[in-house]
Design a protein around this nucleic acid. Structure first.
Length: 598
RNA sequence: GGGGCGGUAGCUCAAUUGGUUAGAGUACCGGCCUGUCACGCCGGUGGUUGCGGGUUCGAGUCCCGUCCGCCUCGCCA
């Protein structure tokens, strides 16, 4: 076999006159005649034009070259020379070509179902790309993403190793626990009737590692949650997971803020500056979401006090509602110049759309400068002056309202804010707006069960000084949890953990986990906490989402080599699939449904 | 589980109100071409219209069911 001396994006005019051997895939062929054939040879790095020219190449290989087709795998040896027909400015190697003197067809390819072409792929159905992933991944764009992902992982390891973190692997076959997402489970062969769960994250193991004296832990683990995927979410995903001992919240924020800063510098050459902070409360009130997108304005105001002065039933009725967060509210934001930019069709559409978030609609009106007209204008007339001042309205603004329980109104208007920013193209797509969201509530009340549930997870510590509220008013207790958000997307989250068994037991009590259950599910943690647990805390970044941001895609499947579809399938290997009855018998498992026909 | 969009040649798409033998580009095959680079020119092959029913003289088109893909609500401590 011809062994390559260079890759396909390496040769330049400086190599003129030298001999090179290249190997790769036939990207395109241009069969110019029986005696002149051009091949663009492709590998991971790029393209190089190879020419088979009867004047300079042996006749037998020119003959073989005529039969070359896309995606054939070949190696060639030849002389590097300046191109006879002028340079191709589109290629890095466009100044030169290799005139082949030897050709080895390493593997003829069947006619490919798809071509590894970035432009074609834009138009192509994703289904056919996933089914033929080995061809799709040959595309320059996909290769660049894989490279970037690799570089990020590499950078991550270097960054944390330099800071004295230990990389430690945690098990994949663990124990199913209540709370959290649905577990993927694995039947035990050796212990009939028992099941392992695949980890949703290494959360408890990394805490145990702190108790085990490891001090600083880092891992890039796979995590698995059996929930429906989304554009930015897969059941199987990767975290940058870490934990530190003898630290407080500031230490974690410093360490990870520094990491994000260095990572953006390293991969994008961007200085993201000091990362600001915002409390969860401020995020919810001003942006209607716990991961605010700060690339645009449209800030939200609570106008419940003004709304109470109107006779508008939509407002007053909403405020009479109650929910775990108290009485109902009316919120509003203005869209500067919205009268010009927003059509009736759009605003009608928004009213319909917010119903998916449980809101009844979106009351709307237009500012005339000193008052309001159309829509709900006449209802807000009594509070016009105050409303204009509160929102900072100017003539030509459109004002949107949400009136409902705090939860529904906040969510609906927060989503609407984002939707309008997208529709009106208010988002600066070159901006990187990072923000730490801090001071989350420890718990929220689940309306169905009327139980407290942990907002983050039940191992999150109360913020220092808040412990007493666990007894007196759990709903008011603020946690030592934090999320890192960039451009409205949560890329990481973590907390200082509970390191005292009595506090941990108290939290289990509050979320309705009986001592017996707590012992059965988390007994190992409670015991470990009793044997010398240092104060500790940590964070996990979603590697997939980091890569998405850095390479600029909104599809998580683009940054995973072998992703799954919306229904959890792998179209390339056709998983999941039926297994043999013998396997089931061995595992002591019986299916309740007919085996899928495969 | 709910809502929305989609599925026609290997790929991307077209096909009037239900109406002749389902077309085009590209890919592929054959021929021509010594400077192309999305090479070009000429000719050709290629279809279970996702699948299963139904309505009809007649279904890619209408109806029912089902499968698959994408977006989304629920879900994702």
């Amino acid at each position: 076999m011809l062994k390559r001396t260079h890759h396909c994006n390496e040769l330049r005019t400086a190599h003129e006159g030298e001999t090179a051997t290249l190997a790769g895939w036939v990207n395109t062929y241009r069969e110019h005649s029986k005696s002149l054939v051009f091949i663009d040879l492709r590998d991971r790095h790029g393209l190089t034009q190879v020419v088979f020219d009867l004047a300079d190449s042996p006749a037998d290989i020119v003959d073989v070259a005529q039969g070359l087709r896309r995606e054939d795998v070949i190696a060639i040896r030849g002389l590097i020379r300046k191109r006879g027909g002028g340079a191709n400015p589109k290629l890095d190697t466009g100044e030169i070509e290799v005139v082949a003197t030897e050709l080895e067809v390493l593997n003829k390819a069947e006619t490919p179902p798809i071509l590894p072409d970035d432009q074609e792929a834009e138009k192509m159905g994703e289904e056919v790309r996933l089914r033929n992933r080995y061809i799709d991944l040959r595309r320059p764009k996909m290769q660049r993403i894989l490279e970037t992902r690799s570089r990020i992982a590499q950078f991550t390891r270097a960054y944390f190793h330099q800071r004295d973190f230990l990389e430690i692997e945690t098990p994949l076959l663990i124990k199913s626990t209540p709370e959290g997402a649905r577990d993927f489970v694995v039947p035990s062969r050796l212990e009939a009737g028992s099941w392992y769960a695949l980890p949703q994250s290494p959360q408890l193991f990394k805490q145990i590692l702190m108790i085990a004296g490891c001090d600083r832990y880092i891992q890039i683990p796979k995590c698995l949650r059996d929930e429906d995927p989304r554009a930015d979410r897969q059941a199987e995903f990767t975290q940058i997971d870490l934990e530190m001992s003898f630290i407080d919240q500031e230490d974690v924020l410093d360490t990870m803020g520094g990491f994000a800063t260095e990572l953006w510098k390293e991969t994008l050459g961007v200085d993201i500056g000091e990362i600001p902070r915002m409390t969860w409360h401020e995020a919810m009130e001003t942006y209607g979401i716990d991961r605010p997108d700060l690339r645009f304005g449209l800030e939200i105001s609570d106008i419940s006090d003004l709304a109470a002065k109107t006779d508008f039933k939509v407002f007053t009725g909403a405020m009479e509602k109650t929910s775990p967060m108290g009485s109902g509210v009316v919120k509003a934001f203005r869209v500067p110049g919205g009268v010009e930019k927003l059509t009736r069709k759009m605003t009608d559409g928004y009213s319909e759309w917010v119903k998916t978030f449980g809101a009844g609609g979106v009351p709307t009106t237009k500012c005339t400068g000193d008052g309001f007209e159309s829509g709900v204008g006449r209802f807000v007339e009594p509070i016009a002056a105050e409303l204009i001042e509160r929102l900072g309205c100017e003539k030509g603004d459109t004002v949107f309202f949400a009136a409902d329980t705090w939860e529904v109104a906040t969510r609906a208007i927060g989503e609407l804010r984002i939707r309008i920013a997208r529709d009106l193209d208010l988002i600066d797509h070159d901006a990187w707006r990072f923000v730490w969201v801090v001071d989350f509530p420890m718990f929220e009340l689940d309306e169905e069960s009327n139980r407290w549930v942990a907002l983050h997870h039940p191992f999150t510590a109360p913020k220092p000084g808040q412990e007493g509220l666990l007894e007196t008013d759990p709903g008011k207790c603020i946690s030592a949890g934090y999320d890192l958000v960039v451009n409205g997307s949560e890329i990481g989250g973590g907390s200082i953990r509970i390191h005292r068994p009595d506090v941990q037991q108290k939290v289990f009590d509050l979320i309705g986990l009986s001592p017996d259950e707590a012992e059965a599910k988390f007994g190992f943690l409670l015991r470990a906490l009793k044997h010398g647990a240092p104060p500790h805390g940590g964070i996990a970044f979603g590697l997939d989402r980091l890569v998405m941001h850095i390479v600029g895609t909104d599809n998580i499947r683009d940054v995973i080599a072998f992703p799954k579809t919306q229904s959890g399938g792998d179209l390339m290997i056709d998983a999941p699939s039926a297994i043999d009855d013998a396997q089931l018998v061995e595992l002591n498992v019986r299916s309740t449904v007919p085996a899928p026909t495969a």
